[in-house]
């Protein structure tokens, strides 16, 4: 098993110890949290700041296709888009990664070989996570064997909501071990955890278990990434680093479709955790349609006029 931060050895010694720790975290006042996220959403990001934010956002995208209808052709098209988001402007940065199901990882790896764009594979019976640990680990090993650089796992929300925190913890640890050198993103499905207190507890649970990234959602449920739940997770990684020295990334996913939204999330990062997280190594957007909106805004900034959907590629 990978080593865990010694500071938390006693916390994870038993289910009750883990529960005491997680329930001892400061509570979250929902009204106050949402008000803070809303207030940061009123920042006015113009001209040079906007140009910077758009390029940063593009470079942070995990360009995603997670459909039953995914084919090698679709994945290759997505990989091409990730490499050259705007074929008319080669100064456009590449996205951070392409995110696919584990059986498509091999196709993505081949298409992106040597480019620096990572391949992220969802695993562990994504999106529901309803399978045995053996199946989840096999899924993870498949993805790693196919060459995935990053593994996006889902936690067992049923176990979490039933209060079996140690089960969730041990599952994350097992997947982390199976992932080996691949960076592990732990998806909480915040829309199913429902309360902000739960999201804070899940964040700490994931980080103690060795998550490299904590991620809001699968994109497959009603409520996905929101400014408030992302702000809360940013506070968690900030506090975790202050306590342990270990930096963990954050990935809001699902529901972020416009440049305006993306810029609001970057403002949250900027004013909550600061410059250390303003990098694709530490912050990602799980998104698909967002990229084209960013590209249209980018074209608008460079040419002074709006282009339109026919001037960005549809994949």
């Amino acid at each position: 098993m990978p080593t865990i931060t010694p500071a938390f050895a006693d916390v994870t010694a038993s289910d009750s110890a883990l529960r005491r720790f997680l329930h001892g975290l400061p509570g979250v006042d929902a009204v106050g949290l949402e008000a803070r996220a809303g207030s940061l959403g009123t920042r006015s990001i113009k001209t040079t700041a906007k140009a910077y934010a758009i390029d940063l956002a593009i470079s942070m995208i995990d360009l995603t296709t997670l459909e039953g209808a995914d084919t090698p052709g679709k994945v290759r098209a997505l990989a091409a888009k990730a490499l050259r988001p705007d074929p008319t402007d080669r100064t456009t940065p590449a996205t951070a990664a392409v995110c696919v199901y584990s059986d498509m990882a091999e196709t993505a790896v081949a298409a992106l070989a040597g480019s620096g764009v990572k391949v992220a594979s969802v695993a562990t019976a994504f999106p529901a996570g309803r399978a045995s640990l053996a199946v989840k680990l096999a899924d993870t090993r498949d993805a790693v064997a196919a060459g995935a650089d990053e593994i996006d796992m889902v936690i067992d929300r049923g176990a979490f909501l039933a209060g079996h925190y140690l089960k969730v913890y041990e599952e994350i640890r097992a997947v982390k071990e199976a992932a080996g050198a691949a960076r592990l993103k732990v998806i909480f499905e915040t829309g199913e955890l429902s309360t902000y207190d739960n999201i804070r507890r899940a964040s700490w649970l994931g980080m103690i278990a060795g998550a490299d990234f904590i991620k809001t959602s699968t994109g497959k449920v009603g409520v996905n990434a929101t400014p408030a739940n992302t702000l809360l997770m940013l506070e968690a990684v900030r506090d975790f680093r202050a306590q342990t020295g270990v930096q963990v990334g954050v990935k809001p996913a699902g529901g972020i479709r416009t440049s305006k939204d993306a810029v609001k999330f970057l403002v949250l990062v900027n004013e909550t955790v600061g410059a250390d997280w303003l990098d694709s190594h530490w912050f990602r957007f799980g998104a698909s349609s967002l990229l084209n909106d960013l590209l249209m805004q980018r074209q608008k900034l460079s040419t002074g006029r709006y282009s339109g959907p026919d001037y960005v590629t549809v994949d």
Binding site: R43, L56, D276
Partner: peptide
């Protein structure tokens, strides 16, 4: 690498 996100004036 990490850089600084400076807000341009927005009067």
């Amino acid at each position: 690498m990490a850089s600084v996100f400076e807000y341009a004036p927005a009067p």
